[in-house]
């Protein structure tokens, strides 16, 4: 590999997007930002997938009148795959935003660590187990004030 063609920049861009997205998912504390990071990572993966069909000096895979026979075209399959993957991503993102709205109504926060602690408490309450090791102990002092809005207001 003595000299890299400039087209490799596309690859660097796609993989960079995946890296930014995954890093954002692991590092951000606000759940909405985590979701945005997921969207970025998906964009990177889609870009990488569409690049797999790249050809030098090729045109879009559409037969136009007057096109000379034997024109090189790029691979149509990855384009169709990415179209599918993008639409799948959109559906999941819309659903995720709706769930986020309900989470914010329910808990009054979108901070990942606070929510993790509150989810743990909620699950213990749901199961009728107190915090800590002793199953019989009372619920103890709550680490966070209970949010004003509860579920059941859909």
């Amino acid at each position: 590999m003595n000299q890299l063609p400039v087209e490799y920049l596309f690859f660097v861009g796609a993989i960079g997007l995946v890296g930014i997205g995954v890093a954002g998912m692991l590092l951000c504390r606000n759940l909405f930002r985590v979701l945005l990071a997921l969207v970025i990572a998906e964009a990177g993966a889609n870009l990488l997938l569409v690049l797999t069909g790249y050809r030098w000096d090729a045109v879009a895979p559409i037969v136009l009148p007057g096109m000379p026979a034997g024109t090189t075209m790029v691979d149509p399959v990855p384009q169709a795959l990415v179209l599918t993957a993008i639409v799948i991503g959109v559906g999941i993102q819309a659903f995720a935003v709706a769930v986020l709205i309900k989470i914010y109504h329910g808990y009054g926060s979108l901070d990942r660590r606070r929510l993790a602690a509150m989810l743990d408490r909620d699950m213990n309450e749901l199961a009728g187990v107190g915090p800590g090791r002793s199953p019989e102990a009372p619920a103890g002092k709550r680490p966070f004030p209970p949010p004003e809005q509860q579920e059941g207001r859909s």
Binding site: P61, I62, V63, M73, V77, Q79, A80, L83, T84
Partner: peptide
């Protein structure tokens, strides 16, 4: 449009 033939036909 061959992408369409993939999206609706082959796949």
């Amino acid at each position: 449009n061959l992408v369409t033939s993939v999206v609706l036909g082959y796949r």
